[in-house]
Design a protein around this nucleic acid. Structure first.
Lengths: 201, 201
DNA sequence: GTCTATAGGTTGATAGAC
DNA sequence: GTCTATCAACCTATAGAC
């Protein structure tokens, strides 16, 4: 049994190495431009060997994207759980942004690869992925609903549009973020202040 | 002279047709996945014929991207010029967003193709393009500077970070915008209200 | 599990006829 | 100006040795 577990564990570890290599290459090149040879190279194997672990390029991309959204959501949830009891519903949204953005900006090959691949991926893959991503959308939707119900968001706002605009600000940030400037937390602070009271508050 | 102008004009017109076809295909497929055969098809010619008008795929992409930023900036400027004298410096920013976003969301093959291609394009092309895009960045930077100088943006804010976050919200919108929902103007109104007084103002 | 070898297809680009 | 034909390079995926 011990032996079995060890054999299994090695295979699982190699699979993870392949997936991480795929995320890194997909992140840098996007879906179409990334080649299986590059991915295999990054994982220290030959292109043909990848097929022992994954069915092909599409399956590899889908696995990366699945983990990308999962990790982003987990980071957002973890940040919410770190809040103390004094937090109001806007604090919850800002905390979710904080966890989400921090993950996106520091070593997040999976999530950034996911964002970059979304439009390039074959239809079947994209369709399946968007379904999974909708769960993440609902997670954020609930946070905004609660803030409105608590009277912290004016009824003027369309919560769906607001959510997409703000998530867009987050999703685009890997395109321009520079470690030498403001930190991820600083960025969220800017965003939080704007949400609380606008540019002049 | 008339004859010359007409001959010239036909060639120019064909070149424009090729460029528009390239923008359409690049927008849908991104840089790497788009093939010259698809572009030629969309322009009603054979792949080899493209080389009469452009030096190759990279040159085609660069021409699309140049026009993409130019059109976006022109739309933003035009919207500012339509403001009346009562407008304050925040109105100017919101107007720029309005022109920019409206262009981005309605038949803007060039600008959306530009956004999608940025990360995929070969280094030489990207480097040259980012230089041109910086001018657009400075344009927005000036608008924010003026709003701060007028006392309409609290010194708390880092104007560069703020600008990138908000432009990110715009740039990401083609990913999710749906004609059946809110209009581009509605979206800008949401953004404007948030900038003025926050979510609860 | 991982390799080598290769099939089968597509790509960007060029040459030359018309 | 536009076409056809073609090249060399590269791709994904598969087959079979080890």
């Amino acid at each position: 049994m011990n032996t079995d577990a060890e054999l299994d564990s090695k295979s699982v570890r190699t699979r993870k190495r392949v997936l991480a290599a795929a995320a890194r290459v997909f992140r840098q090149q996007g879906y179409a431009a990334a080649s299986l040879r590059q991915i295999a190279d990054a994982a220290d194997m030959q292109a043909g060997s990848l097929y022992y672990y994954f069915d092909g390029k599409e399956a590899l991309a889908e696995a990366v994207m699945d983990r990308g959204v999962a990790e982003a959501q987990r980071s957002a949830e973890a940040a919410i759980n770190r809040l103390d009891d004094a937090a109001d519903e806007i604090d919850v949204i800002v905390a979710a942004f904080s966890g989400h953005l921090t993950y996106l900006l520091e070593e997040a090959d999976f999530a950034v690869a996911t964002l970059r691949m979304l439009q390039q991926t074959p239809d079947a893959v994209r369709t399946r992925h968007l379904k999974k991503q909708k769960a993440f959308g609902r997670f954020y939707g609930d946070l905004f609903d609660r803030a409105r119900d608590a009277g912290l968001i004016d009824p003027f706002f369309d919560l769906s549009a607001l959510r997409m605009l703000l998530l867009g600000a987050l999703n685009w940030s890997p395109e321009w973020f520079d470690r030498r400037g403001l930190s991820a937390d600083d960025l969220v602070a800017q965003l939080g202040r704007m949400l609380r009271s606008g540019l002049n508050g």
